[in-house]
Write a protein that binds this DNA or RNA. Structure first.
Lengths: 208, 208
DNA sequence: AAGAGATGATCAAAGCTTTGATTAAGTGGC
DNA sequence: GCCACTTAATCAAAGCTTTGATCATCTCTT
């Protein structure tokens, strides 16, 4: 838990300093200390990764690799943008928003159902509901016919919060989607849908 | 931090218990305690969300909403599956794998570059490298020409780990990608690429 | 009626992530 | 040389997530 001052392998400071911007000279026969990766950037990362993996690791499926890298990156960027422009400025998180949204959609609803709908674990929902309740957005009541379950509902503040946040959220979604024509959006949605639908055909692990 | 026994609004236990499976009778004029959401499931969630939001919140862009929900869900399912079938069983995490992979790709490389390549914050990389170093997969050295920077490299164990994990990872990627034809995969990749590329045109927030 | 088993929620421990502060080191102006 | 500014990394606090354990409650079988 506490890495406490990692043990650097301290190097002797080189006698002659390089001029700013200069690169260490290449010495034939000796492995380069600092390989040339100045050309490697965020946007070229996937290309380099795929081509090097294909070259060095026989049997790799480059298209599948590229697909997953691209999908993961797109989702990450989207989440980062929405979370930092819409949700965090309001003092909430995207996960909190997702729970709030599920409760809004499903009315007074058991925590278990919220977990199923939002694709989270029950423990995660439990934790999120903890903070949402603390912040006065969600109410928790024991379920009438099942002493184990809790029913979740929105407070007035929660209703106000989800409505306002949702507008802002969708505004931002529209910006993202605006990169594509309506047809392209439909196509993308349909391909992604196919991907997730078929994930039930091989034993893809999913929640509960 | 410690929600400590949340304050349930304790309800009086109903006198007459319902038979298993029966639903509370509908009482006209009185709001239903438990709205009928039995038809709401993981797979119908997006449809319901879009249609209800469109109905109740004027001005919502349903296609953009559906796009983001679908993309987010696809990425989540993919990550969950890969993490739980490939990485966690080996004792590592996907984020750890991503750092390891970036180091493998970029050779001895500064932590800052790893953050840029993998799309993580420098603090996140710092934390991940902490555990990767503790587990003997990554080495950390002070950069020769810059006393602030650290150069990251793979240990023999790290090299072995990334190679083996990557094979397994790509095997799994192939299963996922197998839902789509090669053409469809290309299309999907290209649409996602367009989405991320265009995110620089509106002021999408991104890291560093 | 009673025990066995299933189920819903929560807790606990560990890890990852974020933002903002801090520390150390390099850069540039004078 | 000195001081302000910038930059790399790390720390700190808070929050989210995961798995597995625990507790309470419900259900089923006998």
């Amino acid at each position: 838990m506490n890495p406490r001052r990692t043990n650097f392998r301290r190097l002797v400071r080189p006698a002659a300093r390089q001029v700013s911007g200069a690169r260490p000279a290449y010495t034939p026969g000796v492995p380069q200390e600092q390989p040339d990766n100045d050309h490697l950037h965020f946007w070229s990362f996937i290309d380099h990764a795929v081509s090097r993996a294909t070259r060095e690791l026989p049997g790799v499926d480059p298209l599948a690799m590229r697909l997953v890298l691209t999908l993961h990156r797109a989702a990450n960027m989207l989440v980062y943008d929405l979370e930092s422009t819409v949700h965090r400025p309001r003092g909430w998180s995207w996960p909190g928003f997702r729970v709030l949204f599920a409760v809004w959609l499903a009315g007074p609803v058991e925590a278990k159902k919220v977990a199923e709908l939002s694709g989270m674990s029950r423990a995660a929902v439990s934790a999120l509901v903890g903070t949402l309740e603390r912040d006065g957005l969600v109410t928790k009541e024991r379920a009438p016919h099942d002493g184990r379950a809790v029913h979740l509902g929105l407070t007035a503040a929660g209703m106000q919060a989800i409505t306002s946040a949702f507008r802002s959220h969708n505004e931002r979604e529209r910006e993202w989607a605006g990169s594509l024509s309506a047809d392209e959006q439909e196509t993308l949605i349909s391909l992604l849908g196919k991907l997730t639908a078929h994930s039930t055909h091989f034993e893809a692990k999913h929640r509960a």
